[in-house]
Design a protein around this nucleic acid. Structure first.
Length: 312
DNA sequence: ACTATTTCCTGGATGC
DNA sequence: TGCATCCAGGAAATAG
């Protein structure tokens, strides 16, 4: 389940491997859930663009795209190979075509040279660099054919992931980056909020990138119970929470994230931060500090783990 | 303006 | 062995 450290790890790995490569053509699956932008807009925005950079914003992976300047043709549908499709998929590949919708999409595209491809991995999404002959696994929703001869594939069984495109600078993830939050801005996030601090930490409009694992781990390190109402927490305690969040995220990034179910990074490597979890997934086990059994409760439908002895 | 709850998804685990 | 049921959770949608 990719949260900020996992997404950071993946984005760094992808940056190393695809920066400078050019998207020659795009295949999109027929499932509509993963597509946040119209299929035609995604295809039109990606094709014939050079990947100038890959970075993370919150839990989003952002590919910075720029137009190829040499020998580019605007529409090259003929060069698109349509002979390869995911197995068992009999639907024709999605194409940017001349439907009224596609025309409308194209008409609103600005003429500037840069754009962005934004990927949210959801729960089970992954981006994989493959050789073309590699079997196209089930739940493959997008394939970008790169000029280097490789393919970048988006696979997501549960389809909570999202793909979208934006023109340069248009994409703006909500909330502030936890690793960049100064004390004043951090305090302001929670001021006057009656919601449980756990819910506030998960709210991407406040802080972006913190998910269930790192919220629980941060609250443990800060000594705060997940149900504590945000507005009842003192400035000093929030100060401690801010540092705890940063510390947890930095340590997790250093270890390549947490591999809980099947998470692997862009190189197929597992992360190791799960070995450092002090409360997440440890229900009933003794607290590593005070031996009190870790409790699990549900807040806003999310399992929340804490130590009744250490957290107040 | 906030906050709380429901919904979307599939694979793996569990139970009978 | 087979089949039903439950659970994981990010974020959008809906309800209060």
């Amino acid at each position: 389940m990719p949260e900020l450290p996992e997404v950071e790890t993946i984005a760094r790995g992808l940056a190393k491997r695809v920066t400078g490569d050019v998207v020659e053509s795009v295949w999109l699956g027929q499932k509509k859930e993963p597509l946040k932008s119209p299929a035609s807009a995604i295809v039109a925005t990606l094709e014939h663009r050079r990947i100038a950079a890959v970075r993370r914003m919150g839990k989003h992976i952002v590919f910075e795209l720029e137009k190829e300047s040499v020998g580019r043709t605007l529409l090259s549908a003929k060069s698109r190979r349509s002979d390869r499709k995911p197995r068992g998929d009999t639907t024709a590949p999605t194409q940017s075509s001349s439907t009224p919708q596609a025309e409308a999409d194209r008409s609103v595209r600005p003429t500037n040279n840069s754009a962005q491809w934004i990927v949210h991995l959801g729960m089970t999404g992954s981006l994989r660099i493959c050789e073309p002959q590699t079997e196209v696994v089930k739940h493959t929703h997008a394939i970008l054919r790169l000029s280097s001869g490789r393919e970048l594939r988006f696979v997501d069984p549960r389809r909570f992931g999202r793909l979208s495109v934006a023109q340069a600078g248009d994409f703006d993830a909500t909330g502030i980056e936890p690793l960049e939050a100064d004390l004043d801005r951090f305090l302001a996030l929670f001021h006057g909020r009656k919601t449980p601090i756990k819910s506030a930490l998960l709210n991407q409009k406040l802080l972006r990138g913190v998910g269930n694992i790192y919220a629980d781990e941060s609250l443990f390190r800060a000594g705060l119970r997940p149900r504590r109402r945000a507005s009842t927490i003192t400035r000093a305690q929030l100060g401690k929470l801010r540092l705890a969040v940063k510390e947890v995220l930095k340590e997790a990034i250093a270890l390549g994230g947490s591999s809980i179910s099947d998470y692997v990074d862009a190189d197929g490597e597992e992360g190791f931060f799960q070995l450092q979890h002090r409360v997440y997934g440890r229900e009933g086990e003794p607290c590593l500090v005070c031996k009190t059994p870790i409790k699990r409760i549900v807040i806003a439908g999310r399992s929340s783990h804490y130590c009744p002895g250490c957290q107040t």
